[in-house]
Design a binder for these strands. Structure first.
Lengths: 203, 203, 203, 203
DNA sequence: CTCTAAACGAGACGGTACGTCTAGTCTTTCA
DNA sequence: TGAAAGACTAGACGTACCGTCTCGTTTAGAG
């Protein structure tokens, strides 16, 4: 679906093999165009021209420009999801959030992802790809951490992990898309503290 | 900015007055097209055709299709922001959130807003209009409620109202845009309870 | 069909009127491209570029490049078919043939017509247009001259005018298309003399 | 030039021999495509697909699609040019013309040749091949017959054989290309009679 | 009632990108 | 080494929508 199709090389395959050079050039071109001129500059025409690749080749492997951007995005953000088992729940969640904040704020993955979420509004394929390949893996790490904490009695038994995960992560996406508040490092610990402790004052 | 320009009718104005029929037809056409065929169906060409209006007339009053959609959106969602002073903090927040959940889930304003946030990624005008005319008024209601609760000692003094507001509202927008979880009524009280009480188990 | 559609201006017409500049520029561009680079250089793309006209405008008025060439050809070769009634049959036929030889040999109408006849092999529209607007009017002049000569006893009563006309004119077209022999002025009187007198030696 | 290159098999040749199956399949495919869908359907792509042959193979042996059609045409129309020495001039010419009329009217060689003459307008290679391998041999038979008749005093000494040949043969090609008159058997004797006798009435 | 000004509909215009097609070339493996 | 498979560059195809423009028409208030 994302055009890589680099399946396990079952047979040596007949015919001329796919050009790795073309593939990489297209993905790079898409990322560069996005940074240079915004989403509207990322046209199939411009991608092909910048990558020195024929339009037909682009269309052969990626059905729409959004699919190019999807693969370009995943290529660049194969970030680690690893959790240090020595960390406390708060530490583990804070690390995940901080990594996300910094990825969105400091790399081209931020605008790329914002544009992909935008494109997902009109294209179910993109929504599905984002969900399966980006969102779900990250949510599942958080959901597992929260469920384990509930199981060992650290969190209240009536905790709704799905909602809790959104209360931690959605604000980061929200600020990426709307920019009503900055994406500061401090956001990560604050999100964790406020949700775990609660806002209600203790006397 | 949104093209209505129905300013205070200083003079009765010379010349033919603006056609209210045309204005309404354009806004309706935009909304209908969005529901019928998604954001990609909302082209200036299609709006003009469906509204039985000349393209020049559309361009005269709205610079881009996003501005048409903006005005169409605001026309339909002049929801109340009123807070009943008799309500507790939790009640007031829950009511606001529930209204938002139901607006997003049950009316055409949901997809409209999702598409506007998408369009905002490429158009600063739209981002600004959304911020000023939609997001900010709603945030300020919530921020005032939270600040007052801190002031009267109901909430912890180290509460960050901006982050707290995002922890309440961002999940709703997140589910609107990504659809990884449903927008259920139950979401509203859960968001409020978990944030105010905190997740940490009390022995 | 040929895109002129300059009907008798029944009503003053609504909307922006068709640009005569664009029409002329397209027809000129087509003729120039043909002379510069042959038929293969006459692409819709190149016509639009050379005429400084949008491709959509070209397609709006002419369905294929052959139709552009048709109109371009007719625009340039509204030659006279007039016959001087004082001329003898041989003189009249010779004048018509000589004009054709010189048109084919000395103007851009020669290659244009050759390409149009070529295009007619694949496109019935072009064949019909050529037949009605070019070939038939010229044939009818010759057929009338021949029929009148038969009627007044100048030509043999078993004369087949259709075949005779082809024996006069087809050689000119044949040399235009195949170039196995040159298109010399001398060809015109020779064709007339040989057909009228016959080749058979008189003792 | 036409890609057959089946030279006299001097040595047994090294390597895998050329596939006769591929050669025949390509020529057949070209002829079939022409009849099915007209000249525009005869693309290298379609020829290769229909012949179950790789595009590279087609390009290896024929430089353009016109060359494929040329060879396909010659393959099917190796008609005899033999002249019966017992025939009179008129009989010999009529037989040649009648064979041509029937070939054009009743076999697929008619449209094939029309398309080749069309293609010759844009491609000098095709023009040259047509001239040398088709047109010239046939013209030379006619020119020899005419020259011999002049030599033995049967035809007028001022006869121009080249023009006379065109007055006999060009009408047949003209009707093939333009279709303004049908290709009837009767055309052959009429052409000969009118040219040899002349149209002028004898008292 | 006429004049004037603005908004209106229709629709042609120069552009840009779309997604498809064919031409040819090139690089593999198979026979 | 030829054939087959198929990826590649190059560029024209015809379409859609963009935003602008030029018309003639309509609808008011001003004179």
């Amino acid at each position: 679906m994302t055009g890589d199709g680099r399946d396990g090389a079952e047979h040596p395959r007949r015919g001329r093999p796919r050009s790795e050079r073309a593939r990489a050039a297209v993905l790079d071109a898409a990322a560069e165009l996005l940074l240079d001129g915004g989403i509207d500059a990322v046209t199939m025409e411009a991608i092909a021209a910048r990558a020195q690749v024929s339009k037909a080749t682009v269309y052969k492997w990626w059905p729409t420009r959004a699919h190019v951007m999807l693969e370009s995005f995943f290529e660049r953000s194969r970030g680690t999801l690893a959790v240090d088992p020595a960390d406390s729940l708060a530490e583990a969640l804070t690390k995940q959030l901080l990594a996300l904040v910094q990825l969105f704020r400091d790399t081209c993955s931020g605008p790329q992802l914002a544009d992909l979420i935008a494109a997902a509004q009109a294209d179910p394929d993109i929504r599905a790809a984002l969900d399966q390949q980006w969102l779900r893996p990250r949510r599942e790490v958080a959901l597992r951490l929260l469920a384990e904490a509930v199981a060992r009695g650290e969190l209240a038994p009536d905790t709704d992990p799905a909602t809790a995960a959104d209360q931690l992560f959605a604000p980061v996406y929200h600020r990426l898309m709307l920019r009503h508040e900055p994406l500061a490092d401090q956001l990560a610990p604050t999100l964790v503290r406020q949700l775990l402790t609660g806002l209600t004052a203790t006397r």
